[in-house]
Design a protein around this nucleic acid. Structure first.
Lengths: 232, 232
DNA sequence: GTATCGACCTGATTA
DNA sequence: CTAATCAGGTCGATA
């Protein structure tokens, strides 16, 4: 898998970078922005179904992505994992991730409904999962509104090869949430998933999403979902 | 409850018998008819409600019958039981049986919807539960269409004391399905519920049900069902 | 009492 | 056709 990364640049916009060098080029950014300047490899995205944002309090993760990005070993298969993600504000979101044998599906359960509520997600909105490879991946989660840039019209195809779409991203990245990954064998360990909290507080509403992570962006063009033909 | 049994007699019709002797009187029947020649004690029957045949995928078993015929001990109350029933074709039907505390009701859940579909049961049709006492009861399940024999007119009262209706049953028993009971602590054990598979292949349509288990019956009065009936 | 969570289940759809 | 997937449900336990 090629490592195309996108980087969030202070005072500018989201840009794409295909090398790890960009990470180091931006080390001069101040601490509060550190988290936003890591290369984030898009993993996948999913247009949310009514059930994903409804009373079921769970997000079904398409099996192909689940097994690719969140593999569960035998032990973890028992009780699932606790995955920690960071959003665009540096806020940590911890979701229980597990496999339901009865439905043969992978799900985020505990914590997911709070995310839906706080982000005010509706059916058709798109949740995006990214990671930053490293000494223990960091996981990020973002979302954007349906109709933002690529809209619900392209949502279906987006689900087919969402990860690659990021590689065709314009500098103005409409995605808004990112997260820190932490695989924890299970149960409470609240401070385990330490993640650099962004210290900035500028707020901006972009593509229907409230951003609070710094000096942003002149959003000009957005992800063109269907343009991507290849996949990870 | 007195042990009135009804016995299916070769070349004849359903008859009633109140003693176990009838069972031995019929031991000379050949193997293929064995399953059909056991005394089957009617336990109860229930006219199906719209919910019983709808998308709730469950059959509510009236508490009085549930507690009488399918008692749940403390352990079984946890996960319920897996009950195996045989129908008129010798086909095995496995239903999960459990108690729902929320509704204070006993239900058949898993497996029930498949039965409804295959038998094409509709609201008002009547499901009948029988058993053959022995070394571990055998359970049987049957059904008949509303309007067959005692019809929907008596359905309501039937729900009150359906078991008793069997005692007033005419010799021509319109019931068509029987089953083998097997109480299993739960989970898969496919060969556990071994039931005598009828080795015969004579086919006959009786009471709207295709029978394949032996040399049967001169069905004089049959269920007046839609001629198409169900298939197997 | 209400909301959430975990486990289980099923039918429609599709590969 | 079968098999796999998953959207949309259930109940019961927990907080």
């Amino acid at each position: 898998m090629p490592a195309n990364h996108f980087v969030y640049q202070t005072q500018q916009a989201w840009i794409w970078d295909t090398t790890m060098e960009s990470y180091h080029r931006h080390q001069n950014l101040h601490l509060g922005e550190e988290i936003m300047n890591c290369e984030k490899e898009p993993m996948f995205e999913k247009p949310l179904t009514p059930s994903d944002v409804g009373k079921l309090n769970r997000l079904v993760i398409p099996k192909q992505y689940a097994e690719k990005y969140f593999p569960l070993d035998a032990e973890a298969g028992e009780k699932g994992l606790l995955l920690s993600f960071e959003d665009e504000n540096g806020k940590l979101w911890r979701f229980r991730y597990s496999y339901w044998t009865s439905s043969q599906s992978y799900v985020l359960t505990k914590g997911w409904s709070r995310f839906v509520k706080e982000k005010q997600l509706d059916a058709g909105d798109i949740v995006i999962f990214l990671r930053r490879r490293g000494n223990g991946d960091r996981l990020f989660v973002g979302c954007r509104r349906r109709g933002s840039g690529q809209d619900s019209i392209t949502a279906a195809s987006a689900a087919q090869s969402p990860a690659m779409q990021w590689n065709h991203q314009s500098p103005s990245m409409p995605s808004s949430s990112y997260l820190y990954l932490n695989s924890i064998p299970e149960e409470e360990q609240s401070s385990e998933a330490t993640v650099a909290s962004t210290g900035n507080s500028k707020k901006l509403r972009l593509f229907g999403v409230n951003l609070e992570c710094g000096h942003l962006i002149s959003g000009s063009q957005v992800m063109n979902r269907n343009a991507s033909g290849h996949h990870l």
